[in-house]
């Protein structure tokens, strides 16, 4: 099969679009890991819950998913904070097995609550721009992907500003780097953990919300993203949110271009080959300590 330049560019762009979503999901996951040292298996389920909230606000109130994301962010921040306060705070010092079990248990719980109330049928959000396409130089852009991409980029920039400019953001990073030292300067790390989990959860939920304009919602929707997010988190150096933001784009592009150029079935295995190669050859991740923030 001949490789057509336009199609190659198109597939790279598709990778960037979906990669931005991976970035957002992964940034939340890596923040939680970096600060709390908890591998949050419930991240995908919380993302899925965000998708459902976007769906239902659209269904009942006709609210565009992008607008509902503005409500979803604080709602899921509060939810994440509560999960930390009532659940994780008890196990923050526990073994990683206990932590793994509790976040995994949370996943099952969320998925089953969703299954119970809304069954497992997929649901689609239809917006005024669902079928809006732009043609430029042989390329086709669909509004839902493009809009979600820009929303994700905005969130990424917002996250960066928050973590570098605000006291809480800086306190989160300080806690991630040295819990004890953070306490000596008066940072109440317990509260910071709550905020971090809230922030990570909100990022996942918003990432879920903004893709509902093109991605079908169902109780398993978050899992596909969670698996890739783990790859991205390792790629971008564990705990490094900038690495995750960049890593998401890389994985998105690797996935879609290998899918186009090489073999479609290679795309996911290749993402995992990248994952394994990094673990073996660059255990610090692509950005190592150089870019860690």
């Amino acid at each position: 099969m001949a490789i057509e330049p336009t199609a190659l560019i198109q597939s790279i762009l598709a990778g960037v679009f979906v990669g931005a979503i991976y970035s957002l999901v992964s940034a939340g996951l890596t923040l939680i890991w970096g600060t709390m040292r908890i591998v949050n298996f419930a991240h995908g389920a919380l993302m899925m819950l965000g998708m459902y909230m976007a769906y239902w606000t659209w269904y009942f109130l006709g609210l565009d998913p992008l607008l509902s994301a503005l409500v979803i962010f604080p709602t899921f921040f509060a939810l994440g904070y509560a999960i930390d306060k009532f659940l994780l705070r008890r196990i923050i010092q526990a073994s990683s097995v206990a932590q793994l079990l509790i976040t995994f248990g949370l996943t099952l719980f969320i998925q089953n609550v969703v299954l119970y109330f809304w069954r497992s049928d997929i649901r689609l959000v239809t917006t005024s721009y669902s079928s809006l396409y732009w043609h430029a130089g042989g390329l086709v852009f669909d509004a839902p992907h493009v809009i979600a991409f820009f929303a994700a980029i905005l969130c990424g920039i917002g996250l960066h500003l928050f973590l570098t400019r605000s006291s809480i953001g800086l306190a989160i990073r300080a806690t991630a780097q040295d819990r004890e030292a953070a306490q000596t300067v008066g940072i109440e790390t317990k509260r910071i953990f709550g905020m971090t989990f809230g922030l990570g959860t909100a990022l996942a939920a918003v990432a879920g919300a903004i893709i509902t304009s093109y991605y079908p919602v169902n109780p398993d929707s978050g899992n596909q993203f969670l698996f890739l997010a783990f790859v991205v988190v390792v790629l971008g150096s564990l705990g490094n949110y900038l690495g995750a933001l960049v890593g998401g784009l890389i994985i998105g592009v690797v996935q879609s271009t290998t899918g186009y150029v090489y073999l479609a079935q290679a795309e996911l295995p290749l993402a995992f080959v990248v994952f394994l190669a990094i673990l073996i050859f660059m255990p610090e991740g692509l950005f190592g300590k150089r870019l860690r923030r």
Binding site: A7, Q10, S11, A14, G15, Q224, L228, G259, A264, E267
Partner: peptide
């Protein structure tokens, strides 16, 4: 052959398009 469920199917569709 693609991995399902997928997050994005653009590359497969572009292959078909070619």
């Amino acid at each position: 052959t693609f991995h399902g469920p997928a997050t994005d199917v653009t590359s497969q569709v572009l292959q078909l398009k070619s």
